[in-house]
């Protein structure tokens, strides 16, 4: 079984981010790391391939600069190879352009039995790219997968909902988006890190994949304004007079939590 995981390299969320005032987009010119949301998809892919008893996990990614350290992290976890679509022209690409580029990268790898993405990235949060890729590739798509089992050419998914989960069955090939925390991503081992050095990592441009226009030219959206998030309001302080619990109960009742 072959699985392709769409992964994103993002600025380290532990460091203070900055906006580029000329474009109103996040500055992504420094060191990029593997989006933690994607580490769950990589781990799930590795587990599914192991359970299937054969096959490999490949990665596709897109970044305006040629950064590969995030891809190396995923290769160190156990993925076999990667394609990075890297091109200064990609700067400003919207979600749909990103989906077109990644779909073309998936096709360059010859497709797969399963394509995995995160539900959303930790720096952009559009949450639409995986489904757009599925549409472009004409594949069934299941979102918010929290548990996946493969039975021959059929996939059984537990799909997270607000109330609980749906049990969904889909034929393969297909695309799923996985939620964070579904599996425990493995830590790259010393041997994995060393092996990642020699794994194939191909860097191509959007034009190599035949996708034009990209970046601002291809975007169907512009960011017209960015404003400061509203400061969080101070909490309500209640002095305990011995009956405070009733206030806590009614507060929770108002929120329909109990």
């Amino acid at each position: 079984m072959n699985v392709i995981v769409c992964v994103k390299q993002i600025p380290d969320p532990a460091l203070p981010g900055a906006l580029d005032s000329s474009s109103n987009t996040l500055k992504r010119d420094g060191k990029l790391i593997l989006d933690e949301s994607d580490s769950y998809g990589v781990e799930m892919a590795l587990q599914l391939v192991t359970a299937a008893g054969g096959g490999e996990v490949s990665l596709v990614s897109m970044a305006p600069n040629g950064e590969v350290s995030g891809l190396r992290t995923a290769l160190a976890m156990g993925a076999a190879k990667a394609i990075l679509v890297s091109d200064p022209a990609l700067k400003g690409s919207d979600a749909l352009t990103t989906a077109k580029v990644l779909a073309a990268a998936v096709q360059r790898l010859g497709g797969a039995d399963l394509i995995i993405g995160a539900t959303e990235s930790s720096d952009g949060y559009t949450g639409t790219v995986p489904e757009q890729i599925a549409e472009i590739l004409g594949l069934p798509s299941v979102t918010f997968a929290k548990k996946v089992t493969i039975d021959g050419s059929t996939m059984h998914i537990e799909r997270q909902t607000e109330q609980g989960y749906d049990e969904v069955t889909s034929p393969l090939p297909a695309l799923i988006s996985v939620t964070a925390g579904v599996v425990e991503p493995r830590y790259p081992s010393f041997k994995g890190i060393m092996a990642a050095k020699s794994k194939p990592l191909e860097t191509v441009t959007a034009a190599d994949l035949g996708i034009t226009p990209v970046g601002w030219d291809g975007a169907g959206q512009t960011i017209v304004n960015v404003s400061q998030a509203e400061a969080r309001k101070a909490g309500e302080v209640i002095e305990d007079d011995g009956e405070t619990f009733t206030k806590v109960v009614s507060y929770l009742e108002n929120l329909k939590l109990i």
């Binding site: 350290s69 190396r72 992290t73 160190a76 830590y187 790259p188 081992s189 010393f190 994995g192 890190i193 060393m194 990642a196 050095k197």
Partner: peptide
């Protein structure tokens, strides 16, 4: 670069 990758990997653990 290899040294940095190895140190980064261990730093995470």
């Amino acid at each position: 670069a290899t040294v940095a990758d190895v140190l980064g990997g261990f730093a995470k653990l």
